[in-house]
Nucleic acid binder design. Structure first.
Length: 260
DNA sequence: GATGACCTGTGA
DNA sequence: TCACAGGTCATC
């Protein structure tokens, strides 16, 4: 579920509710979930007696700083991750079909000395926790993307525009839904080869990305776009039946009439 | 770069 | 039973 808007909502909850609380216990039962050599003992050693002091975000990566400047924890929500603080859902308005208290879905978390906790629930296990995440892997954050940054990200690319926009190394934060919505608003076909997009179109695209992020954030998430995600659903702009294709390996909806 | 793999749940 | 899911990674 999470693209940058949902991750930002989760980050905000962590910032509001999980900072400056002493960590008494670490919950890290899932070896698979810990990436890049991170282990449960290492997490315990780093976190017990410590406290988070900041919840930052770059793209879809959440970074928790602690009182120990050498200890930073990277948290990724993957496809199905959600943050829970003190047993409450964190800032995600989506209604999940089965929102049961599935403790076995708690892939990582901490218990605070005050009795509360922060848990990462992730049924699909495609999220991750790691110590000392490498933030340099990620491009400029989509929420604050300037035109110059976008222009640079697109420079000399041959790949379809959708693939470039979803490449976290170039721009961090845009996922499948936000990219489809942005391209639909910009009137650019997802399979369009990036180098053919002229400066005027880049301006339009930049504006569309900004508007999409702002609007969908206000509405409550990545799934609240104007373009319906359904084969043959009418395009709200011109009534043409929407197409469904695979672009950059992902299911893509678009309007062949107004997106070129 | 495109492709498939990773893992598990949900709904048709 | 099958297709699909809002992400990322390794591999050709």
């Amino acid at each position: 579920m999470p693209e940058i808007l949902e991750v930002e909502a989760a980050r905000r909850v962590l910032e509001e509710r999980a900072l400056n609380r002493e960590i008494a216990k670490v919950h890290a039962p899932d070896t698979w979930f810990m990436k890049r050599g991170t282990t449960a003992p290492a997490l315990r050693h780093a976190l017990v007696g410590n406290a988070f002091t900041a919840a930052r975000r770059r793209g879809k990566q959440i970074i928790l700083d602690t009182e120990n400047p050498d200890v930073r924890v990277g948290v990724h929500l993957g496809m199905s991750g959600r943050v829970l603080v003190d047993d409450e859902e964190a800032g995600d308005p989506l209604v999940y079909a089965s929102n049961l208290r599935m403790v076995k879905w708690h892939r990582f978390g901490v218990h605070f000395a005050d009795g509360g906790d922060f848990m990462l629930r992730d049924p699909r296990r495609l999220g991750a926790v790691e110590l000392d995440p490498d933030e340099r892997r990620l491009g400029p954050d989509a929420m604050t993307l300037t035109f110059a940054q976008l222009d640079h990200a697109l420079a000399k690319r041959i790949a379809p525009i959708k693939a470039v926009l979803m490449d976290q190394h170039r721009i961090a934060g845009l996922g499948n839904l936000l990219v489809d919505e942005s391209l639909w608003r910009a009137g650019i076909a997802p399979g369009r080869l990036t180098f053919t997009i002229d400066p005027a179109e880049r301006k339009v695209l930049h504006k569309a990305i900004r508007t999409t992020l702002r609007t969908l954030d206000r509405r409550g998430g990545s799934h609240t776009g104007d373009m319906p995600r359904g084969l043959d659903a009418p395009c709200p702009r011109d009534g043409a039946p929407l197409r469904r294709d695979k672009v950059a390996g992902r299911t893509t909806y678009w309007c062949a009439v107004h997106q070129h």
